[in-house]
């Protein structure tokens, strides 16, 4: 098992390197003087000069890349101009909020999409199949930022069932003691039921917004692969052997149908992390996405750079996790490694 993980890790290295190179190139692709850009509009001439020195802009590109790598290795992602904080510190402190939101969205999407896809595949042409088709075509057409606003309007303004769509926790509550910095988990760890419920109420709308967007590829893939599996030979064998319908459906069909679904998770995460930025803006969610947007508005360049790098690395790691998960389900891959 360890050997497999190590192999996959090595396999992910080129992508990781690609991410670092691209982020580096993006800093140098700035039109005009990168030093002036990083220093900000109001910087003095000395400040600009200092940055130029630090980035090594007077050296050649390879040396600059070396410096960049050295800084990254030291955990130096630069400093935010607007907050004065090191970028890495802020990213690390805001990342849990983004991860919490992303995973809640994924859970929501999975819980809805998989049963929907399975139900649609079991009765092709039935109303549930049509519903599935509608959801998959409409789902990918949803601009997340718009759905978010719409949900906020309906559930907060019209119905009043959702809390004010701003932030992670209603200010009347104190956040739970930080352990993982994910409020849902922390509040459970601290045994604070009311806080947990408040957090859940707060995260529901943004998570559903993001989930609706990725529901479509998940449901579509589940339906297609379940349809394929249900008509395969080994399902016929299982039925001919008299296995009970639930066994045939779940132990035999569903587990096999999951394989292509797991493969699409890569794309799903790409969607999720991308729409994270938009949803965080809509719901004033204090994650790394809104950090990037705040910096964008302030023309604060280092945080954006750090954000792109962090997202790239996160995505590569998530893909690695998906690979490993696939190996867990499919013995053929496991032994190949």
């Amino acid at each position: 098992m360890i050997r497999i993980v190590a192999l996959r890790l090595v396999g992910a290295l080129p992508n990781l390197a690609g991410v670092v190179v691209v982020t580096f190139l993006l800093t140098r692709a700035l039109p005009g003087d990168p030093a002036a850009f990083f220093a900000g509009a109001a910087a003095s001439a000395e400040a600009v000069e200092q940055i130029r020195e630090k980035l090594g802009l007077n050296r050649n590109l390879v040396e600059q890349f070396g410096l960049y790598l050295r800084d990254l290795a030291r955990g130096d992602f630069g400093q935010s101009l607007s907050t004065g904080q090191p970028v890495l510190t802020e990213l690390v402190s805001r990342l849990p909020a983004s991860l919490e939101l992303t995973f809640c969205a994924l859970v929501f999407a999975t819980v809805v999409a998989l049963p929907l896809g399975v139900a649609a595949a079991r009765r092709p042409g039935s109303w549930i199949d049509h519903l599935c088709r509608l959801v998959t075509t409409a789902g990918v057409s949803l601009p997340t930022f718009f759905t978010g606003l719409l949900l906020a309007y309906v559930f907060y303004f019209l119905l009043g069932v959702a809390p004010s769509p701003l932030g992670r926790l209603d200010p009347v509550f104190t956040p739970p003691p930080p352990v993982t910095r994910m409020y849902l988990i922390d509040s459970l760890l601290a045994g604070e039921g009311t806080v947990f419920r408040a957090c859940l109420a707060q995260i529901a709308l943004p998570a559903v917004t993001m989930g609706l967007f990725v529901l479509a590829p998940l449901a579509r893939m589940t339906r297609a692969s379940m349809l394929g599996v249900l008509s395969s030979d080994f399902i016929r064998t299982a039925r001919a052997a008299g296995l009970a319908s639930p066994t045939v459906l779940y132990t035999y069909a569903f587990r096999n149908a999951l394989l292509p679904v797991v493969t699409t998770l890569g794309m799903v995460f790409s969607f999720l992390l991308g729409s994270n930025v938009l949803v965080e803006k809509v719901f004033a969610w204090p994650g790394i996405g809104s950090y990037a947007i705040e910096s964008l508005t302030a023309s604060d360049y280092a945080p954006i750079q750090g954000f792109v790098l962090a997202m790239g690395v996160l995505y590569v790691l998530l893909n690695l996790a998906i690979d490993l998960l696939y190996g867990l389900i499919d013995p053929r891959v496991r032994l190949e490694a």
């Binding site: 016929r236 064998t237 001919a240 052997a241 008299g242 035999y252 389900i329 499919d330 013995p331």
Partner: peptide
């Protein structure tokens, strides 16, 4: 009924197919 048939299949009447490779669940 489907329940009666399920009880007969595999116990009273069994069936084997061509293509044994694809007729078995590949991940079990």
């Amino acid at each position: 009924s489907e329940a009666d048939l399920e009880a007969v299949r595999g116990r009273e009447i069994a069936m084997i197919f061509q293509n044994p490779r694809t007729a078995l669940n590949p991940i079990r």
